[in-house]
Computed example of a mutant assay.
Amino acid sequence: MSNLLSDKRIVISGAARGLGLSFAIACAKQGADVIMLDILESEVQNQANILKEQGFKANAWQIDLADAPNIKSTVDSLIAQNDKIDGLINCGALATGVGGKSMMDYDEELWDRVMQINVKGTWLLSKALTPYLKTSKAGKIVNIASDTALWGAPNLMAYTASKGAIISMTRSMARELGVDNICVNCILPGLTIVEATAYVPQQRHDHYVNGRALNRKQYPEDIDGTAVYLLSDLASFVTGQNIPVNGGFVFN
């Protein structure tokens, strides 16, 4: 076992399932003390307990990225027990049930909720943790966007727009936080086999597999290494970058 993240404390949102859980496991295996956040309180707590039973360092907290006061109170609570934060993965997002409608059929309520969670929630969690990332002297933020924002996936406009915003936010955050030696980067996964994509039509899955330079399905483990690298000291001079990890479906 390598220890690229030894002695680092990493906060991960959306860590109860899917990509967020995979990131938490990968970071823990690299020696990190992981703080797992999710709105699914019992699930994220159970996953943290499993990691601890396996000898890794993990704790879990409930968070609602659509609720600004809840984000602040959650960060206040976890900081009371963990004053040093070295990294943040913004993986929490609303993805299930947001596709399948054209721009003409989207309703405002769904649009607003996607933006509230995916964009505003990412900003507010980053804002709340930035003072503590500054004290690390080498803080890292890894935002999770999507390659849909690069190729313009149809019938998925709210989600695609929200992930395009994450790409732009990454660049602005990198400019603003560089003075405090905080690196901010973004990973753009392709369509990944997780719970949130179970509803995606088979035609869309086939479109991805057939369009990739590497003609196969994508799994969370395909993305873990990039996240670990960006959180590690190996990436201490990498910031403001948006990195597609999609098997070559989109070249950037």
Rank of each mutant, 00 (worst) to 15 (best):
A235W: 02
L78H: 07
T135K: 15
V194R: 02
N242V: 06
A80Y: 03
I71R: 07
L234V: 01
G97W: 03
A28V: 12
S73D: 11
A165T: 02
A161H: 01
T197C: 08
V238H: 10
S73M: 04
D86Q: 10
Q54Y: 03
Y159K: 03
A93E: 08
T148L: 05
D224G: 02
S13G: 12
N3S: 10
N118E: 09
E195Y: 04
K57M: 05
H207K: 12
A235D: 02
A213F: 07
L65D: 09
Q62P: 03
K8D: 07
L214Q: 15
R9L: 07
P189G: 05
A174D: 02
T226V: 15
G121R: 09
I50H: 10
D222F: 01
T148K: 02
W151G: 00
R216Q: 14
S126I: 01
I167S: 00
L234G: 05
I167D: 02
M157D: 06
I79K: 02
G92W: 03
T96G: 01
G190V: 01
Y159T: 01
S172N: 14
I141N: 04
T135W: 00
D83S: 14
L214H: 12
K52C: 13
D83R: 06
P189H: 08
A174Y: 00
N46K: 11
N252G: 14
A153I: 00
T160Y: 01
T170S: 06
D233N: 15
N210T: 14
